[in-house]
Design a binder for these strands. Sequence first.
DNA 1: CCTACCGATCGGTAGG
DNA 2: CCTACCGATCGGTAGG
Lengths: 192, 192
Amino acid sequence: MILEAATKLASIEGVHGLTIGRLAEETGISKSGLYAHFGSKEQLQLEVIQAAGAIVEREVVLPALEEPEGLSRLEATIANFFSYVERLVFPGGCFFSSLLAEVDARPGPIHEVVAAGQKQASAEWVGLVREAQASGELNRKADADQIGFELEAAMTQSNYLYVLYGDPVALERGRQAVRRILGAAKPKPKKR
Amino acid sequence: MILEAATKLASIEGVHGLTIGRLAEETGISKSGLYAHFGSKEQLQLEVIQAAGAIVEREVVLPALEEPEGLSRLEATIANFFSYVERLVFPGGCFFSSLLAEVDARPGPIHEVVAAGQKQASAEWVGLVREAQASGELNRKADADQIGFELEAAMTQSNYLYVLYGDPVALERGRQAVRRILGAAKPKPKKR
DNA sequence: CCTACCGATCGGTAGG
DNA sequence: CCTACCGATCGGTAGG
């Protein structure tokens, strides 16, 4: 419950903008009580990132596993992402989009964790694309890494603009971009 | 010169992470000397944003005006953006990509300035697309707003991943995405 | 532009 | 988990 409050604060102010004092206020626990739990601010930041990862897993990744492997699972995961942004599961929008922009230029252990996590997330998107290629629903000759990049770009941009303007049209543009990207990767129907 | 140092600091730490003390250290001017210039931290932040805007104008927008209106000017502006990121004109990458992510969820005067600036930047991209449509180099029936969104998405994502990993392949993915977006918007050649 | 200073808050610790 | 406290730094001001 401490970590949930911390993820919400950090999604708005960033993991560096998050302070132990503010978190103490928010949770009603004293600062030194929080130090008893986390030991240091950096440890708190790392645990917050981990907790946010579990929330994204629960909101975006896992529910899509009910869909059969292939294009429908890929599309369901994407739909879950847009819904997760739209419902403001984190008040600052997608936690990891914000985090990436915050720490990309700041060296240190958090940078390493985020770079590794981003690499894994990208690999998961590419994996979903490849599954849709394996089932023949997407062209096997398409560049899965490139498609993964373009899908992430559309989702990320939607997230930022939606949070900035509060206007769902940003989400609609992202969904439309996704349709265009996947549409272009569909195999040409064979003439018969 | 003070503002240039400040834009560099802010591109890494953010405009909220920027402190008068750090800037005093960096420039050799005393804190109260800086207050004599800017009056308050918020005023400094606003002037830093304006100074960064002038740099982007100089690096990305203006040089492309030598190209003729239409597709070549659009493509030149995009190429200038990628170059501006690649050369790390700001050590944290594109100043406004970072800024957008930093302030999108924080209400206040800076949020308003950034939202207005982002709206204008988007309108400029869409304007360049429309010019390429007017010259017949892009399909007149294409959705210019949607294309603008997708172009910005590709550029933004490239910026974040390039700064995070330091790997130019992120830029290559963005350039490839741009080619795909513009390629799909080119008019079908008439049969003759 | 400076020195000198303000109260508030930062991350963190002692001792319980 | 708490109270009480530490030195450092924050944004900002007085007075020159």
